[in-house]
Design a protein around this nucleic acid. Structure first.
Length: 498
RNA sequence: GCCCCCAUCGUCUAGAGGCCCAGGACGCCACCCUUUCAAGGUGGAGAUCAGGGGUUCGAAUCCCCUUGGGGGCACCA
């Protein structure tokens, strides 16, 4: 195992986001490609917004995608494993406190007694003057006596890190050289809240240092914050990792992908019936490419090709249609048992929602696979596609049964004749090759276009104009039910004739 | 307001000075296949490589400027 160590550090303040999933994916891919270690660390210091439910959603989502970590918590609220634990920040509070005390002792940081109101006021003044927001430094040079006075006032002290003048430069693995003047960092920044809980910029560095992270691969939204992190690494006396900032995933209007404008929760995609192979494939290709024209790739194939050099710099608009196409490609590649098993939950959901009257068995699903596999953009489409197979009372509007070129009388006659022809096919030989010839012969004999006849039958027995191949559908329905539906349809259409 | 990043078909992208008057994929259109819908096949429309200057014998590829877009600037992560 190489000494490459990367991590994903989600915050359990919301369900697993598409962007987090992709960042996690790029990190594992990088680790797997180079024989490194992939770590999962929970950044749960925002106690007000973090929940165990979100934590569970995130871990389950990553597991569902097939993303596994070498170090970190196994499950929500579960045990940590790995030599650098614990891997949830609320369990590492003592370390942050120690690091902060060290910084304080060396005067690299100082206690700040400013109240939120004071800070707000400062910000408003700066805004009015069209100045960039920045900490004014009110507490930067307090004497011991002045500090004691504020404490005596009962003011809580936050800890601020001193930002020294200078230019911070680093070689981003995807963007190249980046240099930022610390004068633009907004002044000394808070690393520990007044209540003693540490803040993100601080914990991320303390932990990345402690966990020996070698490459920080994250979203571009952290690019501007990187100098703060570098300053902290240096203050803590730890070598800086390599940084690699990935392009953002965008809404259709090219702003950072958000819940408001796009579907961002992985669980939504799972619920719609996207499969992990497709999501992984699609996400990997969002911002990265093989450099070749390969499109459909498995996790392992991607892992063997992955590199940071081919990561795009510009943001990428999330394109649901392309995802759906890739999903269809992967669904077609699944073997029967696998596909049937994955379809199960979706059919159960259809049943639970009352759209079908019973949940088909795995065997039943398997027999119907050949006629639906190429017609499923998502697993969730299965109900609309063949749900009619499992409804007891199919209600069909008679008017929809009449083909465009036909009138009701012709339709009634044709359906009745078709009913006879189908009934003539015995129960034992009720196969599509046995059903088709007599129906075609019937159409020819009466001068009907076969397509019209078939369409009338199709709508009569399924209630839809778009279905899997008709004869396979009739077989799947079974002779008795097919005939019963035909009878009902004839009656309906006859009533139309009046 | 300040700082940083980015810029090839509508979208995802190939392209790392001549192989490019720019290739693939999604989507779109047409045709083929066909009982509908898909899938599949074939073909097509679609990008003066954001614009303008350079450098070079030669630039989508290098440099500069402009424009546009995005991100960041919290006692959020």
């Amino acid at each position: 195992m190489s000494d490459i160590r990367v991590r994903i550090a989600p915050s359990p303040t919301g369900p697993l986001h598409i962007g987090t999933a992709r960042t996690a994916l790029f990190n594992v891919l990088f680790a797997r490609r180079h024989g490194g270690t992939f770590i999962l660390r929970l950044e749960d210091t925002d106690v007000a917004r973090s929940t165990l439910a979100f934590e569970a959603d995130i871990l389950a989502g990553l597991h569902w995608l097939g993303i596994t970590w070498d170090e970190g918590p196994d499950s929500a609220g579960g045990e940590d494993h790995g030599p650098y634990g614990p891997y949830r920040q609320m369990l590492r509070l003592a370390r942050y406190a120690e690091a902060a005390a060290d910084l304080l002792a060396r005067d690299l940081a100082y206690p700040c007694y400013c109240t939120p109101d004071e800070l707000d006021a400062d910000r408003r003044v700066q805004e009015a003057a069209k100045q960039p927001p920045r900490y004014v430094g009110r507490c930067a040079a307090l004497t011991p006596a002045e500090r004691e006075a504020r404490v005596a006032e009962g003011r809580a002290a936050a800890t601020r890190f001193r930002v020294a003048p200078g230019v911070i430069g680093f070689d981003d693995a995807v963007r190249g050289r980046v240099e930022i003047d610390t004068a633009n960092l907004g002044g000394d920044f808070v690393i520990v809240r007044g209540d003693g809980t540490p803040l993100y910029h601080f914990t991320v560095v303390v932990d990345d240092a402690a966990m020996r992270i070698s490459h920080v691969i994250r979203g571009e939204d952290h690019l501007s914050n990187t100098p703060k992190h570098i300053l902290l690494f240096r203050a803590l006396g730890h070598p800086e990792p390599v940084f690699a900032h990935l392009p953002l995933i965008l809404n259709p209007d090219r702003t950072k992908m958000s819940k408001r404008k796009s579907r961002t929760a992985i669980s939504d995609y799972i619920a719609q019936g996207f499969i992990r192979e497709a999501l992984v494939n699609y996400l990997a290709l969002l911002g990265w490419s093989t450099g070749s024209e390969e499109e459909i790739l498995s996790f392992d194939e991607i892992a063997s090709r992955f590199d940071l050099d081919h990561v795009q710099k510009g943001g990428a608009v999330f394109d649901p249609e392309r995802l759906e196409w890739i999903n269809g490609q992967w669904i077609r590649r699944l073997d029967d048992d696998d596909l049937a098993a994955r379809l199960g939950p979706f059919l159960e959901a259809e049943h639970a929602a009352g759209r079908i009257d019973r949940t088909p068995t795995a065997d039943e699903i398997r027999t119907v696979l050949p006629m639906i596999r190429e017609r499923l953009p998502t697993l969730g489409a299965v109900g609309d596609l063949i749900g009619f197979l499992w409804v007891d009372e199919l209600t069909v509007d008679p008017a929809t049964i009449v083909p465009k070129r036909w009138d009701a009388a012709t339709t009634a006659t044709a359906l009745a004749a078709a009913r006879q022809a189908i009934a003539a096919v015995g129960d034992v030989s009720f196969e599509s090759e046995e059903i088709e010839p007599p129906l075609r012969a019937l159409a020819e004999r009466r001068g009907w276009k076969a397509g019209d006849l078939f369409m009338a039958i199709r709508v009569a027995v399924t209630g839809r104009t778009a279905t899997p191949p008709l004869f396979d559908t009739l077989v799947a329905l079974g002779r008795d039910r097919a005939l019963a539906r035909l009878d009902a349809a004839v009656a309906g259409v006859v009533s139309l004739v009046g």
